[in-house]
Write a protein that binds this DNA or RNA. Structure first.
Length: 353
DNA sequence: AACGCGGGGCC
DNA sequence: GGCCCAGCGTT
C-alpha cells in the first residue's frame, strides 16, 4: 500500500503539470471569492457556475454588498442555478458574518462549518484555499478518485462508506501544499477520473488504482439505490390583465423553489381553475386557454406542468392585495428570481402564441 | 431516461 | 445517526 506522502507527491506533481490554475475564483483567492465559488460548486459543475460567479462578483464585489442586498436580488441572480436553499443560505451566511463575526470569515474549518450552507467539505475547501489550513475535502470528484483507487465498495450516501472515504481523505491530505493537493484531487476527478470513460492512461495513480487492476473502474463508487420517481401534475396560471401584466406569487420560504417568484399553482385536484381563482385571489378568470405543457424533474419526483393562460376582467385588475403576490410586466418578471421552467413558460408566451 | 451532485432539517 | 428534501446539466 502506497504511503500517504508518496500519494500526495504524485497528486502534487499532477497539479503542477495539469492542475487548473486559471479558474475565475483562483485569480484573487480571498475567503469571500472562495466561499462564493464553493457554494455555487455544490451540486453544480464548473462550466455552469462560471457565468453565475461572474454575475455575482460583479453585482456584489464584497461580502458587505451581498449582506446588504435583499434576498429577492440574490435569488434573482441565482435564478436557473437550482437548489435555491443555497442562495438563501448564502445570503443568511453573509448577514451572519456581518452581524456576528465583524464581517470576516472565521479562519478554521471547524468554525466555518458552523455557518449556514457550509458543511464539512466546503469548510475544508475554504480553510485550505483561503487560509492554508491542512484541511481535507471530500466532494464528488474526490470521492470518485478515492473510491476507485482503494476499491471502496458501496454508495457514499451510506454513512459507513462516507466515514471510510473521509478517513482516507484525511489520512492522505498532506500538511503542506494542502490547497494545491485539494485542487489537484478535484481536477483529477473532473478531468481524468471521470464518471464514465475515465482516462486512466493519463492518471498519476494508474499503477496503484485497485479499480483499474480489477478493470471495474465504473463500479466505483457504488451507485445510489434506484427508487422509482412518481409523477405529479399541476396547473400553473398565467393570469394576465388588460395591460398585459402577469400575476406572480412568492413561494413559501422553504421547500420546492423556496422564496422564488412563481406562477400561481392550481392544485391538481381542482377540476376547474376558474372558481379556484375566484376563491383564492378574488378575481374572475376568463378565456382559459391551455399552453404547451412541460415536464420538469426534481430529484425525487417529476412534475408535469400545465400552464393555463387566462384573462382577468378589467374590473378585477387591481383588487388583488396580497403581500405574497405582485402584478408585473413580462420584462419585469424575467428580472425576478424565477424557477427555470417558469422562465421557460414566460419566454414561450412571447414566441409561442 | 438515468445519473450525479453537499448540505439542511427533522426525528 | 438515519432519513427525507431539493433542480439543474450531462450522458
Amino acid at each position: 500500500m502506497i504511503t500517504p506522502s508518496d500519494f500526495a507527491d504524485r497528486i502534487l506533481t499532477f497539479y503542477h503539470q495539469h492542475g487548473r490554475k486559471d479558474l475565475p475564483w483562483q485569480q484573487q483567492p480571498d475567503a469571500y471569492r472562495i466561499w462564493l465559488s464553493e457554494i455555487m460548486l455544490q451540486q453544480t459543475q464548473v462550466a455552469t457556475v462560471i457565468p453565475y460567479y461572474r454575475k455575482f462578483l460583479s453585482r456584489f464585489p464584497t461580502l458587505k454588498d451581498l449582506a446588504s442586498a435583499s434576498l429577492d436580488e440574490v435569488t434573482s441572480l441565482w435564478s436557473g442555478l437550482g437548489y435555491y436553499a443555497r442562495a438563501r443560505n448564502l445570503h443568511k451566511c453573509a448577514q451572519t458574518l456581518l452581524n456576528h463575526h465583524d464581517g470576516e470569515f472565521p479562519r478554521t474549518a471547524a468554525a466555518l462549518e458552523a455557518l449556514p450552507g457550509i458543511g464539512k467539505s466546503t469548510a475544508g475547501a475554504i480553510a485550505a484555499f483561503a487560509f492554508g489550513e491542512a484541511a481535507a475535502i471530500l466532494d464528488g470528484n474526490v470521492k470518485r478518485v478515492l473510491a476507485r483507487c482503494f476499491a471502496v465498495a458501496g454508495w457514499p450516501g451510506e454513512s459507513r462508506v462516507n466515514r471510510q472515504l473521509w478517513q482516507l481523505a484525511e489520512r492522505l491530505t498532506p500538511a503542506q501544499s494542502t490547497a494545491s493537493y485539494n485542487q489537484a484531487m478535484m481536477d483529477l476527478g473532473a478531468l481524468i477520473c471521470r464518471r464514465s470513460k475515465p482516462a486512466c492512461d493519463q492518471c498519476p495513480l494508474e499503477d496503484i488504482c485497485q479499480a483499474r487492476q480489477l478493470q471495474r473502474q465504473t463500479d466505483f463508487p457504488g451507485r445510489k439505490p434506484r427508487r422509482e420517481r412518481p409523477t405529479r401534475t399541476a396547473s400553473f396560471l398565467v393570469l394576465r390583465d388588460t395591460r398585459g401584466q402577469i400575476l406572480l406569487q412568492r413561494r413559501p420560504p422553504t421547500g420546492i423553489w423556496g422564496a422564488l417568484w412563481c406562477l400561481p399553482e392550481c392544485p391538481a385536484q381542482e377540476t376547474d381553475p376558474g372558481p379556484w381563482c375566484a376563491r383564492e385571489f378574488g378575481v374572475e378568470a376568463t378565456d382559459l386557454r391551455a399552453l404547451a405543457s412541460l415536464r420538469h424533474s426534481f430529484s425525487h419526483f417529476d412534475l408535469t406542468m400545465e400552464p393555463l393562460l387566462a384573462m382577468i376582467r378589467p374590473a378585477d385588475c387591481r383588487i388583488m392585495e396580497r403581500p405574497d403576490c405582485q402584478w408585473v410586466s413580462h420584462d419585469e418578471a424575467l428580472q425576478l428570481g424565477l424557477p427555470a421552467p417558469v422562465r421557460t413558460i414566460l419566454l414561450n408566451l412571447e414566441t409561442g402564441e
